[in-house]
Each structure stands twice: as structure tokens, then as C-alpha cells.
């Protein structure tokens, strides 16, 4: 197991390094990924943005997130492509790259049973995108349906920065 694990890590490390240099790394969002994301960002204010390449309003909002990232380095930014037209990793990577979000933590739905993935995130979510979840340092989740107002996101981020006094 140890050897297998090491080989896996090595292979993945190589792949990731190559991928990042050229394009956005895209992780597969599968069953359990949501809990993994929550766990890995626990205690850190995190913006999770759900979007998709075939979604018109997403095309406008996505590039704005780059400015958000730049303005708020203390906030973790996670994007999840939950496009309702599945199986488009190349287009997804290309749009992330164009939006200047290659360095964000980028995921893409990669389970044919998208209903189940969405249910793990929010049982009431029927799949409309864009959608943004703001996860506060102490875990409070605020969901914004549709395109978010950047001023609203800025306000939330500033509030999060104020809760620690250190950024």
C-alpha cells in the first residue's frame, strides 16, 4: 500500500506541476468531495463558486472573481464546475484560464449522477448556476443564488478579515 501510495503521489505531483504551468488544474468532484472541501478549508473563510461553461450569466461573473481573489488574499477561493451539460473538462479549463482563475482551487463535477452530488452540498439545490457559498471562519454558510454582487462579496470578505484582526 505504501509503495502504491508513493507512486500515486509522484505521478500526481508530476501531472499537477505540468498542468498548472499551462492550464488550470481541475480536480474531479465526486461523492465525498464536498466533505473533503469543507474539511480542508475548516477554520478558513472560503468562497465556493458553482458555475458552468454553458451558463450565460457565469461568463460575466467568473472573471470578476479574479479581482476578488487579488483583493482578498485571506479568503480561500474554490470553484466547482457544476455545469448541467457534463463532460467538458477542456472547455472548463480554458474558461478558468481566461478568467485568470488558474491558481484557484478548481473542481469539476465528474459523476454521472449529478443529483446526488448536489444533494450532498444542499438538498434543496436543483442545479441552477451560478451559485456562491460563503463559508465563514466559524462555519456559517451563506448561499447566494444567481450572479453575486461583487460589493456584497467584498463586504463579507472584509467582515471575515475583521473577525481575526490578522490577514
Amino acid at each position: 500500500m505504501k509503495r502504491k501510495l508513493f507512486a500515486g503521489l509522484l505521478l500526481l505531483g508530476t501531472l499537477s506541476a505540468t498542468a498548472i504551468a499551462e492550464e488550470a488544474e481541475l480536480k474531479s468532484f465526486e461523492r465525498g468531495s464536498w466533505q473533503q472541501i469543507l474539511h480542508s478549508h475548516a477554520g478558513r473563510p472560503t468562497l465556493v463558486h458553482f458555475w458552468g461553461v454553458t451558463c450565460g450569466p457565469c461568463k460575466i461573473e467568473l472573471p470578476q472573481l479574479r479581482h476578488f481573489m487579488k483583493d482578498h488574499p485571506g479568503i480561500d477561493v474554490v470553484t466547482i464546475s457544476a455545469d448541467l451539460v457534463p463532460n467538458l473538462p477542456e472547455a472548463t479549463q480554458s474558461m478558468l484560464q481566461k478568467a485568470g482563475l488558474s491558481s484557484a482551487e478548481n473542481w469539476m463535477f465528474s459523476d454521472g449522477f449529478a443529483d446526488r452530488l448536489r444533494f450532498e452540498i444542499d438538498p434543496t439545490w436543483q442545479g441552477d448556476i451560478p451559485r456562491t457559498m460563503l463559508i465563514a471562519r466559524e462555519g456559517t454558510v451563506t448561499t447566494i443564488e444567481g450572479a453575486a454582487e461583487m460589493s456584497e462579496l467584498d463586504k463579507w470578505a472584509q467582515g471575515q478579515a475583521a473577525t481575526t484582526g490578522s490577514r
Binding site: L12, G32, P89
Partner: peptide
């Protein structure tokens, strides 16, 4: 983060490192 994903993938017996 990549290492974590790899561990996760191996534990789950899947290949989440690459899009499938």
C-alpha cells in the same frame, strides 16, 4: 492539496486525479 487528493483517491480505489 494534490497529495491529499491522491491519498483520497487511493483510499477510495478510484482515479480522481484525472477526469474520467
Amino acid at each position: 492539496a494534490a497529495a491529499m487528493a491522491a491519498i483520497f483517491a487511493l483510499w477510495h480505489g478510484g482515479s480522481s486525479a484525472q477526469m474520467n
